[in-house]
Design a protein around this nucleic acid. Structure first.
Length: 355
DNA sequence: TCACCTAACACATTTGAATAGC
DNA sequence: AGCTATTCAAATGTGTTAGGTG
């Protein structure tokens, strides 16, 4: 296997020519957009040309998409949550493949949040000269057998609205809708293209798009229900969960006219993400965004576990390809291995050329 | 005034170096 | 000396929110 360091570094870019255009998607499961197909149950498994890709954390994506997924953009780059995690099968075990994630606009419009839902506010920003960045999995290229033996997680991918970004993050426009696309690019020679050389996606290349992963890029969360889901699912936001339980924020946020009933299935918390433990989500009535206009609260977060708190030790790793340095993902009580190197965890960003 | 953006903030988690014990 | 376990601090990832900008 080629180590991650063999690929382009975070500051290097290459160009991938892709024959399938972003094709403005009309399909959207986003309730807050008022789409008719919001109730569709998008399958977590797709098979194209004998290659099957499973959206491994589909249950979480479904919960988010039912509310209208939002992803925060920051200048320094923000990780996606939920992130794209796939399981692959049907690849040629001995063939080398590149796995690339691109995030393309799913509509031509710019949006604005109007009390309880998104509405079109005008023409969307154009792609700069038809090029967008794509995130190459840092173990690319890798043998088909290696990709198939482990989960493929893109959780290192970061989103930014900084168009001068030099860190290799995916650059998006705020208040625009996007959808991630997974590109599987076979490399018959096993040679990673040079960073300044276009990577031709031939007819054997495959692109997978899961409609439930569509999201709105924002700089501040607009839909209160999304904030609640993020807090409930993301371990790094655990510190905010108590606030929902003790009702302080509930009282602060809730205004009768803004309340929207929340379906029980939308707040159901399943242990699907690396964190998810966990107690049932508060059945807090959802409401549209109400910005708090009050003095900053001097909060006492207080770690109940005290200074001596130690995170639980990582369970034993599931055997995987000896070529890969495993990283554990704890999902649904099971352990999976994803291609993450603690040593070489540079994000690899490439430019994707769309014809 | 409004919509949107930015940066500082406080917390949780992760990571790795330092230390102790065997 | 070498290995393992424990402790601690720094780095990083979160959502919050006051204030800035156009």
């Amino acid at each position: 296997m080629t180590s991650a360091s063999d690929g382009p570094t975070s500051t290097e870019t290459s160009v991938i020519s892709i024959s399938n255009s972003p094709s403005w998607s009309s399909a959207s499961p986003l309730n807050s957009f008022g789409d008719l197909d919001a109730e569709k149950d998008f399958p977590p498994v797709m098979t194209i040309k004998g290659v099957t890709v499973t959206l491994e954390n589909n249950s979480v994506w479904k919960q988010f998409s039912s509310c209208g997924t939002e992803m925060i953009l920051t200048k320094q780059g923000r990780r996606m949550f939920p992130y794209c995690r796939y399981r692959l099968s049907g690849l040629d075990p001995n063939m080398m493949y590149m796995l690339v994630l691109s995030i393309v606009p799913s509509t031509k419009h710019r949006y604005r949040w109007n009390s309880s839902q998104w509405e079109v506010s005008g023409q969307g920003e154009h792609l700069i000269q038809g090029t967008i960045r794509a995130f190459s999995h840092h173990y690319s290229p890798c043998r088909g057998s290696d990709w198939m033996n482990s989960l493929v997680s893109f959780y290192k991918l970061k989103l930014t609205n900084n168009f001068q970004d030099q860190d290799g993050h995916i650059i998006l426009h705020s208040m625009h809708r996007y959808i991630p696309k997974l590109h599987i690019v076979p490399l018959p020679n096993g040679v990673l293209p040079k960073t300044d050389q276009p990577v031709q996606m031939g007819p054997e290349s495959i692109t997978f798009t899961f409609p439930q992963t569509e999201f709105m890029a924002v700089t501040t969360y607009q839909n209160f229900r999304i904030t609640q889901l993020k807090i409930n699912h993301n371990p790094f936001a655990k510190g905010f969960r108590d606030e929902w339980k003790n009702g302080r924020l509930k009282e602060t946020f809730l205004e009768p006219r803004a309340m929207v009933s929340i379906d029980a299935q939308h707040v159901e918390v399943k242990p699907a993400e690396p964190s998810e433990d966990e107690e049932e989500t508060d059945k807090t009535p959802a409401l549209c965004r109400v910005r708090r206009k009050k003095k900053r609260i001097n909060r006492h977060w207080g770690n109940p576990k005290g200074k001596n708190y130690k995170p639980s030790p990582a369970p034993p790793a599931v055997p995987c390809s000896p070529l890969l340095q495993p990283e554990l993902d704890d999902i649904d009580g099971l352990l999976f291995v994803s291609f993450i190197s603690k040593v070489e965890n540079k994000s690899v960003c490439q430019r994707l050329f769309i014809h």
